[in-house]
Amino acid sequence: MPNPALDAIDLKIIAALQKNAKATSNDLAEAVGLSPSPCARRVRLLENAGVIKRYTVVVDQKKLGLPISAFASIKLERQREDDLDRFSQAVLRWPEVVDCYLMTGQRDYLMRIVVRDLEAYERFIKDKLTRLDNIASIESSFALGQVKRSEVLPI
């Protein structure tokens, strides 16, 4: 459920920016039914409130020479807070990890790792992941193709 402090216009702004973050102020204002100044003020308020975290570019990973998406399920030996924090801090330093989630169930973490080839993935596993203390097991799966990827939230 949306934040009750967000009204219909805020949600329209967010939806429009999710589709095209490069929209001009005038185009955005027209799309949501406001004049440019009030629209720009609302965007700033959404940014300041942390609702809009940042603006980014979505690129084609294959065209950048990074065709491999590997999913690694990680089980830790212990799940104490300091162990979880240590793992999280390590993951934040690794650019190959593009998504990482703390999970419920049989595994503690699920990561998506993007690399050039299988050798690069093997280096990532050997040089980074397995060097961490407290790793009990790693299960890897490789994406054969991408059906859908989206940063657009269903608002």
Rank of each mutant, 00 (worst) to 15 (best):
A5T: 12
A5F: 12
D7C: 02
A8Y: 09
D10R: 03
K12P: 00
A15F: 06
A16P: 10
Q18A: 08
K19W: 10
K19I: 05
A21F: 11
A21R: 13
A23L: 11
S25F: 14
S25Y: 10
D27Y: 09
A29Y: 00
E30W: 04
A31D: 02
V32P: 04
L34T: 15
S35W: 00
S37C: 07
C39I: 06
A40I: 08
R42S: 10
N48S: 11
G50H: 04
G50V: 01
V51N: 05
K53C: 09
V59A: 06
Q61V: 05
Q61L: 14
Q61P: 11
K62A: 07
K63E: 13
L64P: 04
A70H: 04
A70D: 01
A70Y: 00
A72Q: 14
A72S: 15
S73M: 07
R80T: 10
D82R: 06
L84H: 04
L84M: 09
D85G: 13
R86I: 13
V91P: 00
L92E: 12
R93V: 09
R93E: 12
W94D: 13
E96P: 02
V98E: 09
V98C: 08
D99R: 13
Y101H: 08
M103Y: 06
T104M: 12
G105D: 07
M111P: 01
M111R: 06
V114H: 03
V114C: 08
V115L: 03
A120S: 14
Y121S: 00
Y121V: 00
E122M: 06
R123N: 11
F124G: 01
K128M: 03
D133H: 13
I138W: 01
E139F: 02
E139C: 05
S140M: 07
F142L: 06
F142V: 10
L144T: 07
L144D: 15
G145Q: 12
R149D: 12
S150Q: 15
E151H: 14
